[in-house]
């Protein structure tokens, strides 16, 4: 009963520690990669946090969401990556924001091996992207600073360019053709982009499991907010994605676990590892042919402290819900968010209110309390499926003196 109505947690346990902990063990029968938060002590690409760090993350998240909306709206209108590029372009050319993922595509990174012999490449993993790309030698136009050595096609025994006449290039909705080589281009909501040669090479997901002839972008013109990562690992549902390319090998099954905090590690796994796990609660995945990249789910309700909120199902149905590893904060229709916020505030009235942080408008100052009692929040799906969020999924802990309800509202009900 208690676990369904609330969580008692120490505020300090919601904050990342200064050292990395909780490593994930490899399972012998599963292709499993270690997954870490880009800004935590487990990350090889960690940078020192600035004072307004959390607000920056949330502001970036808003840009990311805006771009997702833009892509979906464009697809609904008949554009958005379904038609060939209208302009011929060389790798140095700016590309329209119609393909690729979005800014802040990954808060979580994994390290893979690319080429023969494999060279380590640290990539953001993103279920909202299809094309995988890395920065490539000789960086004919531009490369940003990255952690790993730049991938050098000349040093790989298995590297090959993809020709314009190939099916792979057709699947890509290529940007251009240059001397018979397929040119890919992905652009991002903030103007970040990667353009280069569409290529194939061996991709080692683990030291013992490689994908031969994996199709990826070998970036020659790369710029933007990618931190120190070498590129992006695309796990969307479209044809160029890793998931689709490995459909026969892993049966279109993959999974991940995002750790509780930035000082813990999670995993990204491929193959049928957990589908028979009796603790897994399943809900239907919905797909839209106009936006094949995205995975949609049918969220129909929310409960707080074990009580279902009075939100008409039509509120959720009107806009739909997609699940995305690259969006930080869950966005709800305004009516749903208002109901959640009201119920949450009612259960948190004993705590001192704190100022809003960016898009998070319901914050509290738990200073001096040590332990806080959070109302349980569950997401409801058809078939009586209830997913009870972890405490780390209910509040966003900015620092020891500010925890905020980790949800935000969309601008409109049909957004």
């Amino acid at each position: 009963g208690e676990s369904r109505s609330h969580h008692k947690v120490n505020v300090s346990s919601l904050l990342p520690r200064k050292v990395c902990s909780n490593s994930i063990d490899a399972l012998s029968n599963v292709t499993r990669l270690r997954l870490v938060h880009r800004h935590g002590p487990c990350s090889p690409a960690v940078r020192r946090r600035r004072s307004n760090f959390e607000a920056e993350i949330l502001a970036r998240d808003q840009l990311h969401v805006g771009f997702l909306r833009q892509r979906i709206a464009a697809a609904e209108l008949g554009g958005g990556g379904t038609s060939p590029a209208s302009t011929r372009a060389a790798p140095s050319t700016k590309i329209p924001a119609r393909s690729g993922a979005s800014v802040s595509a990954g808060d979580y990174i994994v390290t893979v091996g690319l080429g023969t012999p494999p060279k380590a490449q640290t990539l953001f993993f993103d279920t909202g992207s299809d094309v995988t790309w890395v920065q490539c030698q000789p960086c004919t136009v531009s490369c940003y600073r990255q952690l790993d050595q730049l991938f050098d096609p000349a040093s790989s025994a298995t590297y090959a360019n993809v020709t314009c006449a190939s099916a792979a290039c057709s699947d890509l909705d290529a940007l251009d053709c240059s001397d018979g080589t397929c040119i890919y281009g992905v652009s991002y909501g903030d103007g970040s982009q990667s353009v280069g040669f569409y290529s194939s090479d061996a991709l080692a997901l683990t030291p013992s499991d490689a994908v031969p002839r994996f199709l990826f972008g070998c970036g020659q013109a790369n710029e933007g907010l990618f931190g120190l990562a070498a590129g992006i690992l695309g796990l969307g549902g479209g044809r160029p994605s890793l998931v689709t390319q490995t459909m026969k090998k892993y049966n279109g099954v993959f999974g991940y676990c995002l750790p509780a905090s930035a000082s813990d590690t999670g995993y990204l796994a491929f193959g049928d590892s957990g589908s028979t796990n009796p603790t897994v609660k399943y809900t239907n995945m919905l797909r839209d042919a106009k936006t094949p990249t995205f995975y949609f789910i049918n969220l129909i309700g929310i409960s707080v402290a074990g009580q279902r909120l009075r939100i008409p199902p039509s509120v959720f149905a009107k806009a739909g819900t997609l699940i995305d590893s690259g969006t930080v904060i869950t966005r709800l229709p305004p009516a749903a968010y208002a109901s959640l916020r009201s119920a949450f505030r009612g259960r948190m009235s004993r705590y001192k209110k704190a100022p809003a942080v960016s898009i998070l408008d319901t914050c509290y100052d738990p200073t001096g309390r040590g332990e806080v009692k959070l109302p349980a929040v569950a997401l409801l799906f058809p078939g009586d499926v209830s997913v009870n969020l972890a405490p780390e999924g209910i509040v966003y802990t900015v620092n020891e003196s500010r925890i905020c309800l980790a949800f935000a509202a969309n601008d409109g009900d049909d957004d």
């Binding site: 998240d61 808060d107 995002l258 995993y267 589908s275 809900t283 239907n284 995305d324 997913v387």
Partner: peptide
């Protein structure tokens, strides 16, 4: 569109079965 973001997915094993069109959530995944 509503979006289920990564904060809410923390600690769950999130399983995608694309051919069967199922998404699974397992509490305490990591």
């Amino acid at each position: 569109v509503g979006i289920l973001g990564n904060v809410q997915q923390r600690t769950f094993g999130v399983l995608y079965d694309v051919p069967k069109k199922k998404i699974g959530f397992a509490a305490g995944g990591c």
